[in-house]
Computed example of a mutant assay.
Amino acid sequence: MDAAELALFALLIGAVLGVSVALVVAAAYRARDRAVRRGAITVPEGIGTVLAGMDDAAVVVDPSGTVVVASTPAAEAGLVEGRTLPEAQLALLARAARAGTASDPVVVPLRSAGEVRSVAVHARAIAPRLVLLVLHDVTEQERLAKMRRDFIANTSHELKTPAGAVSLLGEAIESAADDPAEVRGFARRLRAEAERLGALTTRIMTLSQLEADEPLAMREVPVDELVTGAIEAHAAQADAARVQIVRGGETGAQLYGDPRLLSEALGNLIANAIAYSSPATHVGVGVKTVGGVVEISVTDQGIGIAEDDQERIFERFYRADRARSRRTGGTGLGLAIVKHAVQRHGGEVRLWSRPGQGSTFTIRLPQAVRDAADEAALRHPTRSSDKKKRKRRKDSAA
């Protein structure tokens, strides 16, 4: 073998050795990367146990957005082990946490069981490549917050109108000081706006108290007295509108509740029935007891309520006929108060209405149930009290 052949052979041997070394090095790097990846997706000890005891939906996700570990409630939110995150915003929050730029909890929409829920998402990195997402359902809190915002906005708008009218009428009275007839006319309008403003503030306070779950002054309330009082309180309004109020149905029913709130709720229904009725028609107030439930119905022969409006008629400040409501001084809070007052007493309000045929609002409340001892105490309070005293003395002697 000559020198040229030896050199070629040596070159071949070197090439083979070089390739072999390169392959060994590459294999070592790949093995190291696999080991790093295996170590990175290993869930820290104890995380699974913690997630198993959580009431909120919580998941651990890897860099691909796949759920590695999930709490039991997570399945209800569509977060299942072995599947990717269902919402792009969740994946974005996970990437931000992995990069170290996670912020305070973020509220995101999440579709679950066919409905969209609002969830506050906490995202924190728990390993170089793993992120923990904790989802707390805040749908109800968001709804209440929106209701508060809408309530403040609507209240401000409603208060602005009579307040502005009072200011303008005050200026008009000042400018017409030399004309007694004009002053009297402006004064009547001023009084009407002041009464409207007072009614609005009173109803706002009542609704706020109902929504604040303040204790009610509960006692036994005779339905006959409740109905009679509400009718008498609105007799002048009915006479002015040339509408007759007719009382019918059963007598002797009893309710257990706050008489002031129940009277206001029934009064609001009667006032609305009169306001939305045509002259020479009548408003009926009927009572009946069905299966332990007292039903008080208020029926009118008015303009009726369109089907689309019926779904929103109990919302605060909602008016099916704004023009008529303005003319009659309506605040848009009467039916909202009815709904909340009845619900606070464990009842419900039902509505039947047809445009052009009239409407029927029915308050359904549990009937007051008394045992024999309670019945005797109500009929003969002194005698019952004496019996209780004798029983206490006998128990003490024993």
Rank of each mutant, 00 (worst) to 15 (best):
M1K: 13
E5K: 10
A10N: 05
A10V: 10
V16P: 06
A27D: 14
G48M: 04
D55R: 15
A57C: 10
V61C: 09
P63S: 03
P63Q: 05
S64A: 15
T72F: 04
P73V: 06
A75P: 00
L85G: 10
P86G: 09
Q89P: 00
L90H: 06
A91T: 08
L93D: 02
R95W: 00
R98S: 10
T101I: 08
A102M: 06
A102L: 09
S103C: 00
P105S: 10
V108Q: 05
P109S: 07
V116C: 01
R117D: 05
R117K: 11
S118E: 14
R129M: 13
R129S: 15
L130E: 07
L132Q: 08
R149N: 08
D150I: 00
D150F: 11
T155D: 05
H157V: 09
K160H: 11
P162W: 00
D178I: 03
R188T: 01
L190C: 01
L190E: 01
A192R: 12
L200P: 09
S208G: 14
A212I: 01
A217W: 01
V221M: 05
P222T: 11
P222S: 08
E225S: 14
A230T: 07
I231H: 14
I231K: 12
A233I: 02
A240M: 11
G248S: 15
E250K: 07
L255D: 11
D258A: 06
L262K: 10
E264P: 05
A273Y: 07
I274F: 10
Y276M: 02
V285I: 12
T289G: 00
V290F: 00
V293N: 07
E295G: 06
E295M: 12
D300S: 02
I303R: 04
I305W: 02
E307W: 03
D309Q: 03
Y318P: 08
R319M: 15
A320H: 15
D321Q: 11
A323I: 10
T328Y: 05
T328F: 11
G332I: 04
G334F: 01
A341N: 06
A341H: 04
V342L: 13
R344H: 01
E348V: 13
E348C: 08
Q357R: 14
S359W: 13
F361N: 05
I363N: 08
P366T: 13
P381R: 07
T382Y: 06
K388C: 00
R390Y: 09
K391Q: 14
S396D: 13
S396I: 14
